[in-house]
Amino acid sequence: MKDDAAQRHILPLNLYLAVGSGLLVLTVITVVVAQMDFGPMNLLIAMGIAVIKATLVAMFFMHLKYDNKIYMLVFSGSLLFLGVFIIFTMFDTLRRGDIYEEIAEPYLKEAVIYRKAETTTALSHPAADTSNTASDTVTSDH
């Protein structure tokens, strides 16, 4: 019966245990690695490990590897559109004020709360300067 093939993949116990231990090992690795400093690679490494772990969970615990491929499609679809959302929004948020180098004034003086004088120097990205006070960018295009 085709039911059995499609519906019931009884995976061997050892496989589950192996995946589980793999996940635990990766957790240890990611914590240990985070204690060292690789500069800008830090984020990439942490996310890379998280992606591997997530793939393990999805493939084996959630049976995506064995099930009808449509479920894989649904799941990857959700990630694809989430990616579009974040990346396209960042086309804006990371590149504000590219053309017009205006120094905008925040229109609400009290807009920035908790700003500490000593930290305004440390910011690295050019966009970060203008958007400390997100409000100033609002006026920048007019």
């Binding site: 804006d92 948020t93 229109y107 997100a134 409000s135 609002v138």
Partner: peptide, 13 residues
């Protein structure tokens, strides 16, 4: 909300 350090344009996104 800009008064709390937020970005109103982000809302539009």
């Amino acid at each position: 909300d800009p008064a709390m350090g937020g970005d109103p344009v982000l809302f539009q996104h």
